[in-house]
Every structure is written in structure tokens, then in C-alpha cells.
Design a protein around this nucleic acid. Structure first.
Length: 293
DNA sequence: TGATATGTTATCTT
DNA sequence: CAAGATAACATATC
């Protein structure tokens, strides 16, 4: 799933690929995922707009246009953004769909999961794919984008994320399980299931631990682990455990470095234990009960 | 065939 | 009433 490191990887690649380019046309194939609602209106309002900046807040990509509006994109669980320079490459280059990076299931572009296509004036294309159609693309004003972004919690890779702030957040929810805090986008933004599990492993804390049971040293350890894990994952260009791919359609390189996520029944990388998987607040949760206490 | 996967939000329950 | 739990969204895979 695209979480902070995956979205940040895409942001950096988009900056290189499409910043400064002008949208020639935007084709909407699945209007339910797009605002404005009608493809004609979406096309009209994006036509001839130049991309001036690409930023990110939580798991949302924010593409600034030269008319003062913004294209904001959320990939949710199975979204992909893929850029292609020339038409000839479209037929040749394959991309992975649905665990495809692990198992095959590779297809060309556009394909049945392509729901929005941006064409730029230089002939290049940006494809928005989403197998399960949870993701969205919205054209919004500055006021709307500011409102949306205000609702997210602290960004864990900025200087706003301090130990003091982390402790304040934890103090508000003494009875919650620690993983629940990590996964709550209104408290800390950008961490999803993969990096919540990995952060808990890094801090040697069981994800099921009630917040109030955490000792100051454990809180500090977790506080340090979160940015450490996220930065490492960005350096590896993200985790392609399911559908996520980089902007060029290739999988990220993070999977071999995961310690617990997706490793149920496999040997722990830190000890002789075996990675277990349980359900926690409705989410699959991985841990090693020998390494994590 | 049915259970599972999951980010976010809406809605139901305690 | 607030906090917590679950359903919903869509679709493929186990």
C-alpha cells in the first residue's frame, strides 16, 4: 500500500518528470474517482494548465497548477501513478498489477485499471491506475486544499515531530493500543499498516501494548524508530508488497528489508522466533513476540 | 465459496 | 456524549 515513503518517492520522481509541463488533455474513464464530477468539466479545467510544483502531505500528492488551483491525488490501497515519455514506450514497457511485482500479472498501459490519463503538450503521459478504485483525483482551490491538509496530524519527517509532541499525543489516549496511535492519520500522518508494524518491531514493542504501559525509554525508542524506518524506506524507493510501483512502473526495493510485515510464519530476522500475525483493530498485525515485549 | 487484504470515513455500538 | 468498534467502498487472491 502506498504510505508516506511510497508517496514521497512518487513526489520526487514527479518533480523530475512533470514539473513545468503543460496538460494538453485529461481523460477520465471512471468519473466516480474524480472531482469535478463530469469528465468534460475536469478536462476543461485542467486543459492548458502548467504544473508549477509537487508537494506531499500525509499520503496525499499535491500538484500545483499555474492558475492557482491544485490537483490532489490519493492512491489509497491499490493506486498507481505511472509516467511514460513517448508513445512507443507505452506498448513495450510493462508494469505490475495486483501483487504483480512478486508474482507476474504484468500488463501494459493503458490497461483496465487505468482510470485517468493526463497527456502533456510534449507527448508524454501520466496514468492513474487503481485496481480497487478507492483512490481519487481532485481539482481543488487553495482554500479547499488548505482545509483538507489541516485535518492531518503531524508529519513524522519534519521538525514538527518532536518527542514532546509525541508524548502529548500519547497522553491523550492512554487506553489505546500503540499501533492504533501510529495508524491514526489525524494524530500522526503517513504511517500505514506496513510501517506501523515495522516501527513497533524496531522499537522492540508489541503493537498490542496499551499506550499507558509504555515506559519513557520505550516511547523514546519508538519516537526515534518512526523517522528512521520511513527514511530508510524512502531510500529504498518504497515497499512493493502489493500494487505499489514507482513512477516508471518498476517495484520499490524495500520488501527484502521488512522485518515483520508480510512475513507470517517466517523466521524472525532478529532471533530464533517466528513472525506471528494477528488482527488488531481490524487490521492484520505482524510481530515477533521474542524480540518485542 | 467465503475469508482476507486495506486507507479513510461514515455509521453503529457501547 | 464520547470513545471505540465496525461497515463501507471494490476487486483480486488465498
Amino acid at each position: 500500500m502506498p504510505e508516506l515513503p511510497e508517496v514521497e518517492t512518487l513526489r520526487r520522481e514527479l518533480e523530475k518528470a512533470v514539473k513545468g509541463k503543460t496538460i494538453k488533455s485529461a481523460q477520465v474513464k471512471w468519473p466516480k474517482m474524480v472531482l469535478p464530477k463530469t469528465p468534460a468539466e475536469f478536462q476543461k479545467k485542467t486543459k492548458n494548465k502548467k504544473i508549477t510544483d509537487i508537494s506531499r502531505r500525509a499520503k496525499v500528492l499535491i500538484i500545483a497548477l499555474n492558475d492557482g488551483n491544485f490537483l490532489i491525488i490519493h492512491l489509497k490501497l491499490t493506486g498507481q501513478l505511472i509516467f511514460r515519455n513517448k508513445k512507443s514506450e507505452i506498448r513495450n514497457q510493462k508494469i505490475a498489477i495486483g501483487r504483480g511485482s512478486q508474482k507476474g500479472g504484468v500488463v501494459g498501459l493503458p490497461n483496465k485499471y487505468t482510470h485517468v490519463i493526463f497527456e502533456f503538450t510534449d507527448g508524454s503521459h501520466l496514468y492513474f491506475n487503481d485496481l480497487r478504485k478507492f483512490g481519487w483525483v481532485r481539482l481543488v482551490s487553495k482554500v479547499e486544499v488548505d482545509k483538507l491538509l489541516r485535518e492531518f496530524g503531524v508529519e513524522p519527517l519534519t521538525k514538527d515531530f518532536t518527542l514532546a509532541k509525541f508524548k502529548i499525543i500519547l497522553k491523550r489516549y492512554p487506553n489505546r493500543k500503540i499501533k492504533q496511535i501510529l495508524m491514526d492519520p489525524s494524530l500522526i500522518s503517513g504511517i500505514g499498516n506496513i510501517y506501523a508494524d515495522e516501527s513497533c518491531f524496531c522499537a522492540k514493542i508489541l503493537p498490542t501494548r496499551p499506550v499507558k504501559s509504555l515506559k519513557p525509554l520505550e516511547i523514546k525508542k519508538l519516537f526515534l524508530c518512526i523517522p528512521k524506518i520511513l527514511k530508510f524506506a524512502i531510500a529504498k524507493k518504497g515497499t512493493s508488497a502489493d500494487d505499489y510501483v514507482q513512477l516508471d512502473g518498476q517495484p520499490g526495493d524495500m520488501v527484502p528489508y521488512l522485518k515483520v510485515y508480510g512475513r507470517k510464519g517466517e523466521k524472525c530476522k532478529g532471533c530464533r522466533g517466528v513472525v506471528e500475525k494477528i488482527k488488531l483493530n481490524g487490521r492484520g498485525t505482524h510481530f515477533c513476540r521474542v524480540c518485542q515485549k
